[in-house]
Simulated assay, not measured.
Amino acid sequence: MSCQHNNLIDDTTLEFPRTGFWIVHVIGAFFLVLLGMRLAVRRAPLPIIAYRLLKMLR
């Protein structure tokens, strides 16, 4: 005797990794992008960015 449950994600790519798996990976990627953006802004002060932008527009 087996117990069969009807599940919407049976036989799909989402079957093995459940919702928690995807939430952890999405939040982790979002955190890494934000950390990289903060580091990039700290390393390049605004006057240097403005100078490069004006130089590029010439």
Rank of each mutant, 00 (worst) to 15 (best):
S2K: 13
S2V: 13
Q4N: 13
Q4W: 07
H5P: 08
N6T: 05
N6M: 11
N7A: 10
N7D: 09
L8V: 07
L8F: 07
D10I: 09
D10V: 08
D10W: 10
D10M: 09
D11M: 12
T12D: 08
T13H: 08
T13C: 08
L14T: 03
E15M: 05
E15N: 15
F16E: 15
F16L: 14
F16M: 13
P17N: 14
P17S: 14
R18T: 11
R18D: 04
T19P: 01
T19G: 09
G20E: 04
F21V: 00
W22Y: 12
W22D: 00
W22C: 02
W22M: 04
I23C: 09
V24S: 05
V24W: 03
V24C: 04
H25A: 06
H25R: 05
V26L: 05
V26D: 03
I27T: 04
G28E: 04
A29E: 07
A29C: 05
A29H: 02
F30T: 15
F30D: 01
F31R: 15
F31G: 14
L32A: 10
V33A: 10
L34H: 06
L34T: 14
L35N: 00
L35G: 01
R38W: 00
L39V: 07
L39I: 01
L39M: 07
A40F: 05
A40L: 08
V41W: 04
V41L: 09
V41S: 04
R42V: 02
R42F: 01
R43H: 08
R43A: 13
A44D: 07
A44L: 10
L46G: 06
P47G: 12
P47N: 11
I48E: 08
I48H: 06
I48W: 02
I49P: 00
A50V: 12
Y51W: 07
Y51M: 11
Y51T: 13
Y51I: 08
Y51F: 13
R52Q: 15
R52N: 14
L54V: 06
L54M: 12
L54P: 02
K55N: 03
M56V: 06
L57Y: 01
L57C: 06
L57F: 05
L57H: 05
R58H: 02
